[in-house]
């Protein structure tokens, strides 16, 4: 059984205002930002699923939906045999001990008035029955694990560097020994050398603590390093999902091909074939009918105006493209 299963997840943000009222009066469906528009995937125990896509594709909304930081418009999130979507209040909070998240902005996600020690102890107050002294000890252990020296424990976030802050965030996420951690662009605000250290730390923690990750990133090279499987999102839907090795060796969806061919490769002798998409991502309010990439895809055919669903083109390799 998968550790986490997301089934038909939908999140629409209504636009509100007079436009919505007018639409209702005229009998149209009111307009909405269709941030996540039918997403399904599963993460096995110990597995890391990479979720990639460009800004606005809905990947961070998927993360928030999984943790129920926002409520879905439709669909389910199952964690083991628990349907998280059906929970509320205290039962939901109890699940969060096993489901944690590291946010993109290491500064904004720390309370400036809590010391490092307090920030890391906080989840234990909420989720454990440990006594104060035990909590202190446990927080110190976890902070040592992520490579923060003891003398930093009583510092406040503004006294730390960006890399150190992200380590505090990671420590806070793993202090309750969760089984599943959502990492939302955890390395994108870090400099090259710090990024490498953070990636290696995450890989090491996964190996020693047996956690599963949902690793959200727009940095394909990092995803390749850390994830065993990858799902590619475009305009609120998954367009391709495969094992990392297969996706990077043989991408099938034109969007995946375009994304991979756009990543600059640090080797000046490599000549690559570029698949260039026209224009920019359409607004998630006016999503084109049929294949969502149709208007930008250089390979588009008349058939692409028909709706397209994810189908298996090879074992455990799913693609949503008429032409794949």
């Amino acid at each position: 059984m998968p550790l986490l299963a997301v089934e038909g997840l939908v999140k629409h943000f209504p636009l509100g205002g007079p436009g919505e009222w007018l639409d209702r009066v005229r009998g149209h469906a009111p307009k909405a930002v269709r941030a996540v528009d039918g997403v399904s995937f599963a993460v096995e125990p110990g597995e890391t699923l990479g979720l990639v896509g460009e800004s606005g594709c809905g990947k961070s909304t998927v993360a928030r939906l999984i943790l129920r930081l926002v409520d879905p418009t439709g669909g389910h999130v199952r964690f083991g045999d628990v349907n998280l979507t059906a929970l509320a209040g205290e039962p939901l909070r109890r699940q969060r001990r096993n489901l944690q998240m590291v946010f993109q902005d290491p500064t904004a996600s720390l309370n400036p008035r809590l010391s490092v020690r307090r920030a890391v102890e906080e989840p234990l107050r909420r989720h454990s029955t440990l006594r104060a002294a035990e909590r202190r000890e446990r927080a110190a252990q976890v902070l040592a694990r992520v490579g923060l020296e003891r003398e930093l424990l009583d510092r406040y976030p503004h006294e730390l560097s960006g890399g150190q802050r992200q380590r505090v965030n990671i420590a806070r996420a793993i202090v309750t020994e969760p089984r599943f951690v959502v990492l939302d662009e955890p390395t994108s605000s870090l400099d090259v050398s710090l990024r490498a250290k953070a990636i290696l730390l995450l890989a090491e923690l996964r190996a020693t603590l047996g956690m599963s990750y949902l690793f959200i990133s727009h940095d394909l090279a990092t995803v390749k390093y850390l994830a065993g499987r990858v799902a590619v999102m475009y305009l609120g839907t998954i367009v391709e999902e495969a094992s990392t090795a297969e996706l990077f060796r043989q991408p099938r969806h034109p969007y995946t091909k375009a994304l991979l061919s756009a990543v600059p490769v640090p080797d000046p002798t490599v000549q690559r074939e570029r698949l260039v998409l026209r224009g920019e991502v359409p607004s998630p309010i006016d999503i084109p009918a049929g294949c969502r990439l149709r208007g930008r895809c250089p390979l588009a055919q008349p058939v692409c105006a028909e709706p397209v669903t994810l189908r298996e083109v090879a074992p455990r390799h799913r693609v949503a493209c008429h032409l794949a």
Binding site: S193, A196, I199, L220, A221, Y225, V265
Partner: peptide
């Protein structure tokens, strides 16, 4: 120190 998409590497931080 960089992960890369064009080959498999063992990344070493600076």
């Amino acid at each position: 120190s960089i992960p890369r998409i064009d080959r498999d590497v063992t990344m070493e931080p600076i």
